[in-house]
């Protein structure tokens, strides 16, 4: 058995101001070198789980339970120690490229600063790697790279964000909705890039609402709804023979399966079940 790189035990996230529980009793482990996909619809709390894993939740939210990264609870680490881990061992790629990219810096600069200041490449090596990375993603360093985020389309911004994710040296990468706003072709290429990361020995926690991403990455996955994990297990097993009615509904709702909406009764039944439990 491989050692778990990340161990999440009974993670609970609550909002103090609204006195509301947003995520409850979420537990899973991610082993070194594997891909773990967290799937769920908007508002299911999957992004919050990603932020809690990296210990960068918004200030008004409080996390309970334990998140151990390499056996250390990040939430208890002082800011200085966390800084030593961010980018080098652990990295979260946020989902809104529009607010994650610095509006007044050329996009090439936002990728190259990682090579320059985190990986400490020399200028020649830097230029070479950067150009290769850009062309790999279907961008050009001298074209798109010399633009500001406001001059790029949403899909283009998403690709720049992906470039940042590929540039970072961290071994454990949490990606939040890496395929949002991408067309089919660039989605496939983005997923391919993520798989490349896996083959380089990196570990991936992927947050998405897209079942095909989970299928492509393989490994294990968990399905979230309303702040709970409803089902988890091996990707192929889970998607081929879903046990929970919500997962079954989710699989049937996928475009390739005919976009069948999830039955209202299922959602209502889950809600009442949680209210009682």
């Amino acid at each position: 058995m491989r050692t778990p790189l990340l161990q999440v035990n009974d993670l609970t996230i609550r909002s103090v101001a609204q006195r509301k529980r947003l995520v409850a009793d979420v537990s899973f482990t991610v082993s070194r070198g594997e891909a773990f996909t967290l799937i769920g619809e908007t508002g299911s709390g999957k992004t919050l789980v990603a932020q809690a894993v990296c210990s960068c939740l918004p200030e008004e939210l409080v996390a309970g339970g334990a998140v151990d990264f390499k056996g250390v609870n990040l939430a208890r680490l002082p800011a200085k120690e966390k800084r030593r881990i961010y980018g080098k061992e652990l990295f979260l790629l946020p989902q809104e490229p529009n607010s994650a990219l610095d509006p007044v810096m050329l996009v090439a600069g936002q990728v190259s600063e990682i090579f320059r200041y985190v990986r400490r490449y020399d200028p020649q090596e830097l230029r070479h790697t950067l150009a290769a990375l850009f062309s790999d993603l279907g961008l050009s360093l001298s074209g798109n790279g010399r633009l500001y985020p406001c001059q790029l389309s949403g899909g283009m911004q998403q690709r720049i964000l992906l470039a940042i994710g590929l540039a970072v040296p961290a071994e454990f990468i949490v990606v939040d909705e890496p395929t949002k706003g991408l067309d089919a072709i660039s989605r496939a290429s983005a997923v391919k890039k993520l798989k490349n990361l896996l083959s380089k020995g990196k570990t991936l926690l992927c947050i998405t609402h897209d079942l095909s991403v989970a299928r492509a990455l393989g490994g294990r996955m968990a399905v979230m709804y309303g702040g709970y994990i409803v089902e988890s297990g091996d990707v192929w097993q889970l998607l081929d023979a879903p046990k929970h009615p919500y997962t079954r509904g989710l699989v049937n709702a996928a475009p390739e399966n005919g976009l069948i909406p999830i039955a209202e009764e299922v959602l209502a039944a889950m809600k009442t079940a949680w209210q009682n439990g």
Partner: peptide, 26 residues
Amino acid sequence: GSLFYRFGAMKGLSPFRVFTAHGIRN
């Protein structure tokens, strides 16, 4: 407080670097 500033720290840049690269001009 903005996302891109905190993202700078997530990238692994030092606080000083984040401030000079993403703080001053914005």
